[in-house]
């Protein structure tokens, strides 16, 4: 379960202060697929960073498995990300000159998985995204769709609990995009992994169990299966005097 409560994030100081997130509250059940929808600059990426321990909001709590990750020391947050989180970035961030399997190996090496165990996991991950035959190819020699599949393989290789996907189909044509969507949702359903997709694409968002709309750093609406996503308490409006 992921509990986000009272999360606020401000950039800058005093006069130049910009509030990216304002008192965000919701809970996500394990195994759900959630879309965080919003326009560019709405704060959806900042929310993803806060939920994954990449960023530290000034206030609030992000409780995952009963542990508030915002209270952890830096090295424990790093360990948490290495072991429990999978990332799918919009711009791939693949190591172009490295082989496909070396790219997939990176999260395992960071998580200090032994060499022998790595081999089996890499094979399984590449099989899951149907890239086994390309294992020895350089990443730069892959097509766009193959690259995105490689990114997914890298995200799932260490069997994470939560996968964050930032515009996973943003750089792909619709046919390839659909295949990637199938892959992601299939993995989500079959393995019980929580999938959190950050997107501005309503069609993609509609395929998720729940849609959380973000506008100007605030949750504007939550739609979909109420069983998996809740707001723990009514949004309190404080009067400023």
């Amino acid at each position: 379960m992921i509990e986000v409560s009272n999360v606020s994030k401000t950039y800058g100081h005093k006069k130049n202060a910009f509030t990216a997130l304002k008192d965000i509250n919701f809970t996500i059940e394990d195994g759900a697929s959630v879309a965080i929808i919003g326009k560019s600059g709405s704060g959806k990426s900042t929310l993803m960073h806060a939920m994954s321990g990449l960023d530290r909001p000034q206030t609030g709590q992000v409780i995952i498995d009963g542990q508030n990750i915002l209270e952890l020391k830096q090295k424990d947050v790093d360990k948490f990300r290495a072991q429990k989180i999978g990332f799918i970035f919009q711009s791939f961030f693949l190591q172009a000159t490295e082989t496909v399997s070396d790219n997939v190996s990176l999260p395992l090496e960071i998580a200090k998985v032994s060499k022998r165990a790595r081999k089996a996991k890499i094979t399984a991950a590449l099989e899951a995204v149907d890239l086994s035959e390309k294992a020895r190819n350089k990443a730069k020699d892959l097509s766009g769709g193959q690259k995105q599949r490689l990114v997914i393989a890298r995200a799932i290789v260490n069997e994470p609990q939560i996968i964050f996907a930032d515009e996973p189909t943003g750089n792909l044509d619709s046919a390839t995009g659909e295949k990637i969507e199938e892959l992601l949702f299939g993995y989500n359903k079959n393995n019980g992994v929580t999938l959190i997709i950050v997107t501005h694409d309503p069609d993609l968002a509609a395929k998720c169990d729940v849609q959380i709309h973000i506008r100007d750093g605030q949750v504007s609406s939550i739609k979909g299966d109420k069983a998996v996503v809740k707001t723990p308490k009514p949004i309190q409006v404080k009067k400023v005097q």
Partner: peptide, 16 residues
């Protein structure tokens, strides 16, 4: 920069 960012995002420690 991107490679370093990726490695850190994936949980690589500063010391490493």
């Amino acid at each position: 920069t991107q490679q370093i960012g990726l490695m850190k995002a994936l949980g690589m420690r500063r010391r490493d």
